[in-house]
Design a binder for these strands. Structure first.
Lengths: 387, 387
DNA sequence: TTCATTTAGTTCACGTTGTAGACTAAATAT
DNA sequence: ATATTTAGTCTACAACGTGAACTAAATGAA
């Protein structure tokens, strides 16, 4: 239901409109903002003034020199006040990242460590230490950290990580074990990585981000918005059926994509002990490794065919392990997509490797808080007091 | 991008808030509306007055008799002014329906006729005649028809019906051949039927509506909103892969759901010449017919498993031919869903037959216009003139 | 150099809309 | 009959955006 609009909400919405226009349109003068937003110059002036006072916008030098007329003063997003904390808990590493309002990385750290089989308390304790470092640094830089988001691999709902196949965890509430002075939210790694690609990638607004790890997840972005389904569990690409009578899967079904293109299946089929080993074998032209990738690619192509038909996808971004395997996967995947979708779609979907690689999840996690501030700056803005 | 909010938009939004609250909350007094919306009594009074003057709300008799205090006057949606026209072009029939703001059916007609192979011009000419009847009747009832929406089976975009497998049409612009005094929009039958179930069904706000015809389409409703994908082509359930090395499909792929559960496959496997014949055979316990349905059900179950994993579905509504075949399909479909999803979801999705049956599409088509008026009533409301 | 022209930004009286609380209206309870 | 309670209206007021006048700061022409 739409909420009632009072004067306060009108102002809040217009603050957002101005801030958003600057965020998208680069440096803009007040006059240009009036043009773009449809508000009058007076209104824009007031709003910009308040946003500058709040530390969300900053004036740059005079713009547009050399032309006739008084040059305007352009404003840009200011990274001086608000920041956010992105956290990632992966099988092989822990990562944190502090982002300011402009998308600038103010702090980033990553600790390689094997979390397989470790107890939640221990792993989250280490993450807490890392996060505290990040918060300390943010504080030293004079930044107000508006919140934190933690990315985990596995289905998430209501603050609970239902299961983490790669860690062997079940029904964990990370926020309870992660005592931080800022509120911590939890979300799925694939969803957050998709948002990372959306906000800090190449500017595409419609795509499916596929995260290949032990499990295979996906995050769907449509018109610049994440689609998470009714309860936030959408994107379980790993259990899309690729062969109804195929290999049994831990989910209870059989022939799920995961049993053909999941990390474990890939390594087993490629006779490799680890992903680096598999990569080395592939680069060395090793037969089983190449065959394993080709088979995984075809399976992925079939699952993606179903996904394209259901979700209407024009662009697919391969992330996680698939980013590194992209040179060996893209051929078979594209081939399957092209043959199977030729009769239905004018052009097959564009396939690319993730541009952000392993940074996507922390960028998306931190970006989520940043974009919440951009979408509703009012709480950070004090009404200008008429002297 | 959010648009700037001026006083006019503030008022427009609040008109919507009040109208929407009445639409959802049944008869409500001004006092109750103030409570519900968070607006003050004075504001609500003004807005309600204008909406009543506009013919969008109507006062009913005094509410809440027998209690202490002055009884309030409840208002309800008024069906007296605005109406809309829903049109459906199906293989076997043409249908029209006039709906008023309350969802009341003011006119409905359906002409059975076999449109297979007919030229677009001829079929749409007949539809135009039927639609004109409907508009005449609406006019006689004093209703202002705000618009019309036409439901067709097949992928649609930008007013173009790209292909209609059941009719043998390609790249038709129905609105051009359908000269009516109201603007005509075009949309996919599965999407519109899904909206019909949402607005005039049993009030569920999250479900996948599956339309089984010659092709198999689907409309996804999440949180009361239709999900149509980036270009409006989402929901092509018929070409979800059910068996990668299976029966070749007209789409260029093979093993698509359509080749197992599409109407043609069903009739062929069941040795029946038509759907009524198949139904008769099923009721008579005919072996091949029963086997055909069971096989189609299993295939549908596999495709829906993929859909549930990708879209996070809690509820699936079977429409089109599947509604009539529901007694024979639900068993195998449920069984497959339960086994294959058991390890992933707490409860398997609820499976039901469409409640509206063949009426869903025209209801959704007409409802689309109605809900557009409900979502933005301002154009219909004249500012009250202070005498 | 001077001044017209052009564009940017600010100021202020005003219009529109929602607010708060007093006021009127219409019912039941005592 | 009168107090009490709830509904709805009325009116002075406040919040916010508007529009036009005004000031500021640049270029270009005389």
């Amino acid at each position: 239901m739409t909420q009632a609009v009072r004067h306060e909400e009108m102002r809040a919405r217009n603050l957002e409109v101005v801030l958003g226009a600057v965020g998208r349109g680069g440096p803009l003068t007040r006059a240009a903002l009036a043009e773009v937003t449809g508000l009058t110059k007076s209104t824009v002036s007031k709003l910009v003034g308040d946003l500058v006072d709040a530390g969300l916008l900053a004036e740059t030098g005079p713009a547009r020199a050399g032309e006739r007329g008084r040059p305007g003063v352009a404003v840009v997003l200011s990274g001086a006040r608000v920041a956010s904390l992105g956290l990632e808990l992966n099988v092989d590493y822990l990562a944190v990242r502090v982002l300011d309002l402009t998308g600038g990385v103010r702090f980033a750290a990553r600790r390689e460590r094997d979390n397989r089989g470790s107890r939640p308390k221990k792993v989250l304790g280490e993450l807490q230490a890392l996060a505290t470092e990040a918060l300390t640094e943010a504080h030293r830089l004079g930044l107000e950290v508006a919140g934190a988001v933690l990315a985990v691999s596995g289905p998430v709902g209501d603050g609970v990580l239902f299961s983490a196949p790669n860690l062997g965890w079940q029904d964990v509430r990370p926020a309870d074990l992660l005592r931080l002075p800022v509120p911590v939210e939890l979300d799925n790694e694939a969803n957050l990585a998709a948002l990372g690609e959306l906000w800090y990638g190449d500017g595409e607004r419609d795509f499916l981000y596929v995260s290949g790890e032990i499990g295979i997840g996906a995050g769907l972005v449509v018109n610049g918005t994440l689609f998470a389904g009714a309860t936030g569990l959408a994107g379980e690409l790993g259990h899309v059926v690729v062969a109804p009578e195929g290999t049994p899967c831990r989910c209870g079904g059989s022939g799920c994509l995961e049993t053909y293109a999941g990390q474990e299946a890939l390594l087993a089929a490629g006779n490799a002990a680890s992903v680096p080993a598999l990569l080395a074998a592939l680069e060395g032209g090793d037969g089983p490794a190449l065959a394993a990738c080709a088979a995984a690619g075809r399976a992925l192509g079939i699952a993606l065919t179903s996904a394209v038909n259901l979700l209407d996808l024009d662009r697919i971004v391969l992330g996680g392990v698939f980013t590194q395997l992209y040179p060996w996967l893209s051929g078979p995947v594209s081939e399957v997509l092209t043959t199977r979708l030729g009769g239905l779609r004018a052009t097959p979907p564009v396939l690319t490797a993730s541009r952000l690689g392993g940074d996507a999840a922390t960028l998306g996690a931190a970006g989520r808080i940043i974009h919440r501030v951009l979408a509703d700056p009012a709480p950070f803005v004090t009404r200008a007091q008429e002297a």
